[in-house]
Design a binder for these strands. Structure first.
Lengths: 245, 245
DNA sequence: CAGTGGTCTAGACCACTGC
DNA sequence: CAGTGGTCTAGACCACTGC
């Protein structure tokens, strides 16, 4: 058993189980824990770190749900031997791109604020005579168009203007306005580009696009945003990690 | 507060937290709990059901992770008001289709068992000179082709034959052989069909297809299966529910 | 201020696996 | 059989929210 050398800082504002989960995750990623390797038992790890077993287990639960660890009753816990892929988070494309060190550019090709069309009203479960923002944006990275995004946002939000949308992600602007998106339903499919889409995205008409329709709700459970995004299939995929329940 | 009327059976082999989670989920789906409605507090619900708070919380955790409930510290827990969509599970397409009451038909268009190509060997992290099954299947539902699936499966498994693959899902056959797939990494994208694919799937060449590449590992953490699937974009999408961590 | 969810403790009993 | 993870109890203290 190599020295895993986990530590926790009991004075940190970061919860203990988060500290432990991060520590194990780091050990997996830098190879101190090899793929397929067995971990010490929950009880042993808890004792080493002077944590209660539920706290230790809470840490390992996170990693099991992420698909990094596999547990078997009566046997033990080990690192997954198969390929490990980071799954999509609930973040905006903008955050994903900046997070991976690239610089996205955004062009707002359409912006309006007015009465919601019946279908949008229905999707966002808005009361009659509600207003929504309707925004179409073209996002590029490294000068290459990547995505054409059409969104509807409920309510009246001071921080949403075309100028701000050109330098921020939509989710970042909403966070700035005190709106915290917590749950999103996404549906991912495929289509072929028509002439207009192809022109904007810099591809041949008829080439493949990934489609994503999403509706996102805030921490009050209210639907806030819905949209349909198109991505160039040659430069974008959605990655998901699934764990059997 | 309407009568939620949850019950638990302490003699059932089903864990208490599962019973509670199923009960709340049922109440949401049949409308006894309306969208956006506040639940009683964890402590109150635990007391009503004579459960400890951790057990109650474990039940609610499941529903929060599924995107059905939203919690806010200092405030309470409520049903999500936005649209609720069932997310993809780690099941085979076959199970998904039979689970929703449809009858899939499978045609095995290619089947072999032999040495693994270097790329497959690498993806499945197989030792040198390993053998794999290589299977290509065309799946239809209601007489309409839906999916063209190419898979590689590690090892030697008595239950895998072309005849059995025509009447069972791959994951079902693996389960029958004692192999329990627990974690899968999937990458979802788009492409356009070439002439051969279009012919098999019954679409016009150049029409949009959803692509899915997947590698799945068993409960020992070993990579067992990898594959590339193509779906007709006009009849298939992947649904995901994301929850902010 | 009272009430909520977030975190944590220190146990218990059990089913299951591998020897 | 000893060891593992799965489930469950009965609390504790805290940060945060809305009044």
């Amino acid at each position: 058993m190599p020295s895993l050398d986990l530590r926790v800082d009991r004075n940190s504002p970061v919860p203990l189980y988060r500290q432990v989960a991060s520590g194990i995750e780091a050990a997996i990623h830098d190879g101190r824990l090899a793929r397929g390797q067995r971990l010490e038992s929950e009880l042993a790890l808890a004792a080493t770190l002077r944590l209660s077993r539920p706290t230790m287990r809470q840490a390992m639960d996170e990693l099991v749900r992420q698909g990094l660890l596999v547990r078997k009753r009566g046997v033990g816990t080990q690192v997954v031997a198969g390929p490990i892929r980071r799954a999509i988070d609930l973040t905006s494309l903008f955050d994903d791109l900046t997070g991976s060190g690239r610089t996205p550019a955004t062009e707002v090709t359409s912006f309006s604020h007015g009465p919601a069309a019946p279908q949008i009203q229905d999707t966002l479960q808005l009361p009659p005579r509600s207003t929504v923002y309707h925004v179409i944006r073209l996002r590029s990275v490294g000068g290459e168009p990547l995505s054409l995004m059409e969104n509807w946002i409920a309510g009246t939000i001071p921080g949403i203007t075309p100028a701000l949308l050109e330098v921020n992600g939509l989710y970042g602007l909403l966070r700035g306005a005190g709106i915290n998106l917590r749950v999103a339903s996404q549906s991912i499919g495929a289509t072929t580009s028509d002439a207009r889409q192809a022109g904007l995205l810099g591809v041949t008409p008829g080439s493949a696009l990934v489609t994503m329709q999403r509706t996102a709700s805030d921490d009050n459970g209210r639907a806030i945003e819905t949209g349909r995004h198109l991505y160039r299939a040659d430069s974008y995929t959605f990655d998901v990690t699934l764990v059997q329940r």
